[in-house]
């Protein structure tokens, strides 16, 4: 099994954190993993992209050029993901911010209103975790069953109080995939 995922959004949406947590959990599930980020120099509002690969085999190029799955967190990222996605690949779209349909009729399209779901949980900042839950359910590549332990080492103690909310967001994201 090799799942190559391309994640894209704008800075501040937690795209980089999502990619890191995805591969961190993958590593804890005994997979080979690689994560390569690309972000602008801006602190907020610039582009944020991540190439992430999880595999049962040795990973060749860390650069994801033809992703098996694409995560589209905002409108600006849609054309890029449409251009790169593998034939018949999975496209997960944050339908809270992407209001148009994709032109890629071959793709398996999964729309998740990440921002709305996250806001209902209490904070829009959890939108990335909602999406990661959906990605897990849609691809089955990373189960995320070790996420709680991963979050404990990923975040400093002062942020541990947010862990239950993160786990809830993952669960809601999984539920959003039919």
């Amino acid at each position: 099994m090799t799942e190559k995922t391309f994640m894209a959004g704008f800075g501040g949406q937690g795209v980089i954190s999502m990619g890191q947590l995805w591969v961190y959990c993958g590593m804890k599930e005994d997979l080979e993993v690689t994560f390569f980020p690309f972000y602008g120099a801006e602190k907020r509002g610039g582009i944020a992209r991540a190439s992430v690969i999880v595999s049962t085999e040795e990973i060749a190029s860390p650069l994801v050029t033809v992703p098996d799955s694409a995560v589209v967190m905002n409108m600006d990222s849609l054309p890029l993901c449409e251009a790169n996605l593998k034939q018949g690949g999975t496209m997960l779209i944050n339908s809270s911010l992407v209001k148009v349909d994709t032109k890629r009729t071959d793709a398996r399209v999964i729309k998740v209103p990440c921002n709305e779901i996250a806001e209902k949980l209490g904070d829009v900042k959890f939108a990335n975790m909602v999406m990661m839950g959906a990605l897990s359910k849609a691809t089955g590549a990373v189960k995320l069953d070790k996420l709680e332990a991963v979050l404990k080492s990923f975040f400093g103690p002062s942020k541990h109080k947010f862990i239950p909310m993160n786990l809830k967001a993952i669960e809601e994201g999984m539920k959003a995939v039919g």
Binding site: Q20, V23, M27, E32, V33, T34, F35, F36, P37, I59, P62, L63
Partner: peptide, 9 residues
């Protein structure tokens, strides 16, 4: 820059 910036196990 790729080896320096990417994360792996």
């Amino acid at each position: 820059g790729m080896i320096g910036q990417m994360m792996e196990g």
